[in-house]
Simulated scan of single mutants.
Amino acid sequence: MTKRKLTQNQKRRIHSNNAKALDRHRRQEKKNIDWQDDLLGDTQDGIVVARYSMHADVENTQGEIFRCNLRRTLASVVVGDRVIWREGKEQLQGISGVIEAVQARKNELARPDYYDGLKVMASNIDRIIIVSAVLPSLSLNIIDRYLVICENAHIPAVIVLNKIDLLSEQELKAAAEQLKIYEDIGYQTLMISAETGKNMEKLTSLLTDCTSIFVGQSGVGKSSLVNQILPDVNAQTGEVSANSGLGQHTTTASRLYHLPHGGNLIDSPGIREFGLWHLEPDQITKGYREFQYFLGGCKFRDCKHLNDPQCALREAVEQGKIHPIRFENYHRLMTSRDENKSQRHFIE
């Protein structure tokens, strides 16, 4: 039996009902857990290591973790945030304290959401690990979406291809040639297998002494990589659906792990889509680092870089200075951005 797809209006009503239910639960919970100042200790520094719908786990400077409520005045609290919090003198319904304030973020990684606008996933990141795989498929278009985000957030990126144990020698060579497109413009790439451990030591060394985050589509093996790097974590893994070819969501909340060799790793929920409709067209253009050498060289200031006469970008493609796949993906992302932005306006 074919499953009927929900209309946009049905999705909007479901989202609205869920939001109202969460709001009622949140108001009741805050009513039940009323932290008075005399029930709280002094303010102290901490870092958010896990974030749930209504709470956050905060680690203090001694490495102890406390589940905390959030002050109503806080606009956003995400994994990686440095926070000011106060421990309760006793637990109230399993809650051990309150987050009072969020310190200024060095940077943040955000993705658009049709209903919630721009949603921050994590903060204070030193490196983004873009995990792709041969299953569901090696999509350079998806990789380019992430790279545009990385470039606009000014966060260095590493492209990792997982599940190479599933490739033949010929397929492995073809994948290496695809990754070379990114190596030629200055990105670091790595081909690994969480299943066999191939090149895992190289990935582990990249994570040392910094805070990294894994991002990528569902089913590319992010949780399997976490289990390889941190065997005691037991992150839940899932298979790729044989029917849809899409990965199954396994990680349900972002979480920060401390690595035994130094450094931190953030495992984020798998996402199948990473839209760019929240970005302006020039932000997407600037997200292609190799384009920067040629921007400003077009004959017309409003050049769309398509069939416009004397387009510097198109001429660079013809001269082999910009890879045609990257140029094609750029226009696909531009088209997708316009379509998604129109859909968002329709929903609103």
Rank of each mutant, 00 (worst) to 15 (best):
Asp308Trp: 04
Thr2Ile: 14
Leu206Trp: 05
Val220Gln: 00
Ala56Pro: 05
Gln236Ser: 12
Leu206Met: 07
Thr211Cys: 08
Gln319Asp: 07
Met191Cys: 11
Ile213Thr: 15
Gln178Pro: 11
Tyr257Gln: 02
Ser224Arg: 01
Arg344Val: 11
Ser218Pro: 15
Thr73Phe: 14
Phe291Trp: 06
Ser96Tyr: 07
Glu90Lys: 01
Ser137Leu: 00
Ile164Thr: 10
Pro281Tyr: 04
Ile284Ser: 08
Gln343Trp: 15
His55Glu: 05
Val77Gly: 00
His261Gly: 10
Asp338Glu: 05
Asp23Met: 13
Arg72Trp: 14
Asp144Gly: 05
Leu313Ser: 11
Leu246Arg: 13
Ser342Ala: 15
Thr211Asp: 10
Thr189Ala: 04
Gln343Gly: 12
Ala101Thr: 04
Gly247Thr: 12
Glu290Asp: 01
Phe214Thr: 07
Met200His: 00
Leu256Ser: 09
Asp232Pro: 05
Glu280Tyr: 13
Asp45Ser: 06
Lys321Leu: 08
Met54Glu: 09
Arg289Asn: 10
Leu70Ser: 06
Arg255Met: 04
Phe291Leu: 00
Glu100Asn: 07
His15Ile: 11
Lys299Val: 05
Asn9Gln: 08
Ile347His: 14
Ser218Arg: 14
Cys311Gly: 08
Tyr182Leu: 09
Phe346Ala: 05
Tyr257Gly: 02
Ile325Glu: 14
His278Trp: 12
Glu318Tyr: 04
Lys3Ile: 15
Arg4Ala: 15
Gly270Phe: 13
Gly80Glu: 07
Asp282Tyr: 10
Gln188Cys: 13
Tyr182Thr: 12
Thr7Val: 02
Leu306Phe: 09
Trp85Val: 11
Ile128Trp: 03
